[in-house]
């Protein structure tokens, strides 16, 4: 596999705190890779090391095959979108987009603005834009340099659900069309699964899972990864297994039985929490209709997605 960015044995400490511990990881070229992890796991540090905003204590950063460890950020073929849009408040949208360039071609701004649907805010100051518009301008600023690699540091974290959803949809489409390598960090599992081709899970400064998104999600190698992906951990028969909620199918002739303890309405489905009767524990799964609390259900578990603990 061809990698755009490769980290080899990268470590970083902030005083006594170990932010990254000997991380070695390759980011596939022209693909979207998400680094998923809880707060304080080191994901932003990792991204800033790739950007050159933080120098690692140890290890190497290779970008497009060359060692960029000691190269300053502005000499890297990289753009970055931050959690906070970080627009200059004294500059209009157009000027903010042009910040990375000395001279800014009008057509390029127009094309980008059309692509990101921000033509109407080009002559507005950041305070006159909504949160979503500000983030779109920040994305336009990142894309105007036509970077080989784009880093996204939780860019949707501050947006409300509807704006977030539309921005993720638009951005994913644009990034796939542009065919650039994207490294995206988030703590939001749904966002990670929606946007990425590849998924890495980081906890306490270590990468514990990496692979294609479906593979990592359906069959994580470690129990820690499975826990973070909110897999079910239940005893079936006399053994404990872990499996994603998608592995559970409610069927009249199901092999196992349980009692519904909770039934929560979600958009497009019902989330059931079932207390297992042929074993121990509570599992979660999706179902197309409501089931009353206390009702008995039978279910099967897809053996392919089942891992023993």
């Amino acid at each position: 596999m061809e990698y755009s960015v490769e980290l080899v044995n990268v470590s970083k400490h902030f005083g006594k705190i170990r932010a990254l511990d000997k991380v070695s990881l390759g980011f596939p070229a022209k693909k979207i890779t998400t680094i998923l992890g809880p707060s304080g796991s080191g994901k932003t540090t990792l991204l800033k090391i790739i950007a050159g905003l933080i120098t690692p204590d140890q290890g190497k950063v290779y970008i497009l095959g060359k060692d960029f460890t000691e190269i300053p950020p502005w000499k890297r073929p990289i753009s970055m979108v931050f959690q906070n849009p970080a627009l200059i408040p004294t500059m209009k949208g157009r000027e903010n987009i042009c910040l990375p360039l000395r001279k800014c071609p009008k057509e390029k701004i127009r094309d980008l603005a059309r692509m990101l649907d921000i033509e109407h805010v080009l002559d507005r100051y950041p305070e006159q834009m909504s949160g979503g518009e500000q983030q779109r301008v920040a994305i336009a600023r990142a894309l105007i340099t036509e970077p080989e690699i784009l880093l996204l540091d939780e860019p949707f974290a501050h947006l409300d659900a509807i704006i977030k959803e539309s921005l993720i949809r638009d951005l994913t489409k644009i990034l796939r069309e542009l065919g650039i390598t994207v490294i995206h960090v988030t703590h939001d599992q749904d966002e990670a699964l929606t946007i990425s081709d590849y998924l890495a899970i980081i906890t306490q400064g270590r990468i514990i899972e990496f692979g294609k998104t479906e593979d990592v999600y359906e069959r994580p190698r470690t129990s820690l990864g499975a826990k973070f992906l909110r897999h079910n951990f239940v005893v079936l028969g006399d053994k404990m297994y872990r499996f994603p909620p998608e592995a559970v199918r409610i069927e009249n002739e199901g092999e196992f039985s349980g009692r519904v303890v909770e039934c929560i309405k979600k958009r497009g489905y019902w989330l059931l929490r079932i207390e297992v009767e042929d074993g121990e524990g509570i599992l979660e799964c999706a179902y197309y209709k409501r089931i009353g609390i206390g009702e008995r259900v039978r279910f099967n578990v897809n053996k392919e997605l089942l891992s023993s603990v």
Binding site: G52, S79, M80, F82, Q83, N84, I88, L99, P100
Partner: peptide, 9 residues
Amino acid sequence: EILDVCRLY
């Protein structure tokens, strides 16, 4: 972040 953006670009 604005200082980072300036360094980056």
